[in-house]
């Protein structure tokens, strides 16, 4: 994989506007959960703006994953400390230096009323969604701090961290995402002296494989009309555009914030 950060013509899908080519040139990005959904959309956008990207996921890249000399993959389980440590080291080798952009997008979503929720299912969700960003964030920051380099972390929260949801009961998921926002603020404060910023996006109803809202199209459409001021699903590209803004130097004075990308649903 080339270490050069020079922008190359990219066939990757741009985000919601023409990507400012080269805004991320020279950046080394690590994306967990980067093989599908918001993670994959962000990988494409990062590449389109000139970054090198390593994806970290239990799953292998799918057939629609971008390929080329600025993309690589490492297989790891974000809940395993030794696997995370090895993966972050391997990513640094592939990138030609420690990653200076981290997107923690690996996550699981399960609907389960609390009376039926087992402790094992609670633990599994908390492990992937909260322990994962902690472990990867810790390894990412340690490597950057040792190298004396600045960087940026973006975590994926959720509007479920901000409001409850009676239609899709998911206490374990909601609690994990609220934890992610607290983790983000703590990362911001503890690592600001090292020039590392940490922010979160809180996606609302986004058209990804994780979305359950539209399983019942009529009910889903009714929700969009009543619950989302912009009256439509968001796209993974729209979330990726916010993530890359937060990771870029355009956001150099933003740290510790959580930005809902939800069509205004939490404004109701």
């Amino acid at each position: 994989m080339a270490v050069s950060g020079s922008a190359e013509p990219s066939t990757a899908a741009a985000g919601a506007r023409d990507a400012p080519a080269g805004r991320m040139a020279g950046r080394r990005a690590l994306v967990t959960g980067g093989v599908s959904g918001i993670g994959l959309a962000t990988v494409r956008r990062l590449r389109a703006e000139g970054a090198q990207v390593v994806t970290l996921d239990r799953r292998p890249p799918g057939p629609d994953a971008p390929t080329g000399d600025r993309t690589a993959h490492v297989a790891a389980d974000v809940t395993s400390p030794p696997q995370v440590a090895a993966a972050v080291r391997e990513a640094a080798r592939l990138l030609g230096g420690p990653a200076d952009v981290l997107l923690n997008a690996a996550g699981v979503y399960r609907i389960r009323p609390m009376l039926d929720l087992s402790a094992a299912e609670w633990d599994e969700t908390l492990a992937v969604n909260l322990r994962g960003p902690f472990l990867v964030g810790q390894a990412f920051a340690a490597a950057l701090i040792e190298a004396g380099l600045p960087g940026a972390i973006v975590n994926i929260g959720s509007t479920a961290a901000l409001v409850a949801d009676a239609a899709e009961p998911s206490a374990h998921y909601n609690a994990s995402k609220a934890g992610v926002l607290a983790l983000t603020r703590q990362m911001a404060v503890e690592w600001a002296p090292h020039g590392i910023r940490a922010n979160a996006v809180c996606p609302g109803v986004i058209d990804t494989p994780m979305l359950r809202l539209m399983d019942n199209p009529a009910a889903g459409q009714a929700y969009l009309e009543a619950g989302v001021p912009l009256r439509r699903l968001g796209t993974a590209d729209e979330v990726a555009a916010v993530i890359v803004f937060l990771a870029s130097t355009e956001a150099s004075y933003l740290t510790g914030v959580a930005i809902p990308v939800d069509g205004g649903s939490t404004a109701i």
Partner: peptide, 30 residues
């Protein structure tokens, strides 16, 4: 710093963001 955030917010890159108050404060709120 503020201009960068505003340029993003009025662009298509914020097309699903509305109704929010976003701090540009170096983490001071925390």
């Amino acid at each position: 710093d503020v201009a960068g955030a505003i340029a993003w917010l009025i662009s298509g890159d914020a097309s699903y963001v509305t109704g929010q108050t976003i701090g540009v404060n170096g983490g001071v709120w925390l």
